[in-house]
Nucleic acid binder design. Sequence first.
DNA 1: AAACCGGGGTA
DNA 2: TACCCAGGTTT
Length: 352
Amino acid sequence: MRELEQLPIPLLAWYHENARVLPWRSDPTPYHVWVSEIMLQQTRVAAVMGYYSRFMETLPDVAALAAVEDDVLMKLWQGLGYYSRARNLKKAAGQVMERYGGALPASYEELLTLAGVGEYTAGAIASIAFGIPVPAVDGNVLRVVARIAGDEGDITLPATKKRMGQALQEIIPTAMPGAFNQAMMELGATVCLPNGAPLCDKCPAAGFCAALAQDKIDLLPVKAPKKARRVEERTVYLIFHEGRVALRRRPEKGLLAGLWEYPNELAEKTDILEQWGIIPTSQRWGGTGKHIFTHIEWHMTARMVQAAGDTLPPGWVWADGPALRQTYAVPNAFQSFVPLVEAGLAGAETLT
DNA sequence: AAACCGGGGTA
DNA sequence: TACCCAGGTTT
């Protein structure tokens, strides 16, 4: 990957002129960098902005994070996705309190031992917050390296990732590794765009980019195709009683772990209300909703139910409007049913 | 190595 | 639609 040797100086010059102003860059303490990097995993900068600011207002330091109530934490994370990130963040905060007295370790290897911190995140924190010269190889960086070096290796393979990481380790400027890593990602996010739509005329590497020279921009990076999603037809039960709606907590492991949801089942299941011990005084079909996860697609149909009594299965709760907004973290998968819920909370007489 | 884990922006 | 995003953990 000879081309990479020419990269650092023009890249850093470009970054100096084009770095975006981001909340976590104004005061890059280890805690700020850590939290922002976890939020940014598989998540765009624009989506993280609001969450980051709110998070720091509520949990300004490691000690606060380690002590936060789970429900408060999940409410702060509601809608951001990949909720295990939040749970690992709190778990790691406990590890930092116990092992290091509340201060993140200035060591790539030690950062790597924290919950939710993998090779990329350890490299990002080490370089940005502590000035340690290690690469931070994310999806942007893999794309940039693949194109500049003209590397046709499958970037989904660990071997390719390792090779590119080693190449970066050899050229990373020891004086400013954090700026270099952020510049690589910034270039990938704003110029060396995916889907064959890069802005090569604005790229500081255009003069020595192998993919550009060989007209292979639209062929790189090479990436193995992903598996198809499966579709699930589900019935979502919006169960009301005296101005409140029924919620249940999802299992602690798996999809949307620990979040709250409107009770739902595969559409093929029948007599489910009976199994739950809920006696309807009235019910009707409501609207439909669709939600696409990475590997599953939910096709949902709402069932509006007025319950005769307030008895619910163990672990379920009745939530009024304020509790729904302030207390219970409900994933965006159910967002399309909010209007139906609002209507149900306001007046159940419409259910007949 | 492959599967699992959200949600949204963009072409 | 399909792709991809400042990836990590589990199997």
